[in-house]
């Protein structure tokens, strides 16, 4: 237990050495409520590559039940960002027909390049963006 804890702390220590918590954010903001007078609303987020090297970022938009959003448009579905670089992404999201509120998840994922064999892992951060249609 102590060994496992020490190992976890060592992993955390090395992670913190390479990552600056104050500046490191991969999706910003993580949550926002919007209002719209039309049948669509606009979401703007900033994504960031927290790794030291350039990585391929993938951006996806999901509905409340984690399915693709029909009719949604993203300014970027993927982008190659240099180490520590930001990118602003804009999404146009339609309301459900007949409903005045909805929320979606916009996710930013990076599968970091690795020299390992077997399993690979990707990090993904998803923000929640809701809206109210005013009419």
């Amino acid at each position: 237990m102590i060994k496992r804890f020490s190992r976890s702390m060592a992993v955390l220590g090395s992670a913190l050495a390479t990552l600056s918590p104050a500046c490191a954010q991969t999706v910003s903001p993580m949550e926002k409520i919007h209002t719209s007078f039309t049948d669509k609303y606009v979401v703007q987020i900033t994504i960031r590559n927290p790794y030291a090297n350039g990585q391929l970022s993938e951006i996806e938009i999901y509905s409340e039940d984690w399915r693709p959003v029909r009719g949604a448009v993203l300014s970027h579905k993927s982008a190659y960002l240099g180490g520590g670089e930001n990118l602003q992404v804009t999404a146009l999201v339609p309301f459900h027909p007949g409903r005045k509120t909805r929320y979606v998840y916009i996710c930013h994922a990076i599968t970091p390049k690795s020299g390992g064999r077997g399993a690979a892992y990707r990090g993904e951060v998803c923000g929640k963006y809701s809206a109210i249609q005013l009419s």
């Binding site: 918590p21 954010q25 991969t26 903001p29 990090g123 951060v125």
Partner: peptide, 9 residues
């Protein structure tokens, strides 16, 4: 602003 960073080590 809320933030969350996932760094795969």
């Amino acid at each position: 602003l809320d933030s969350c960073t996932v760094n795969v080590l």
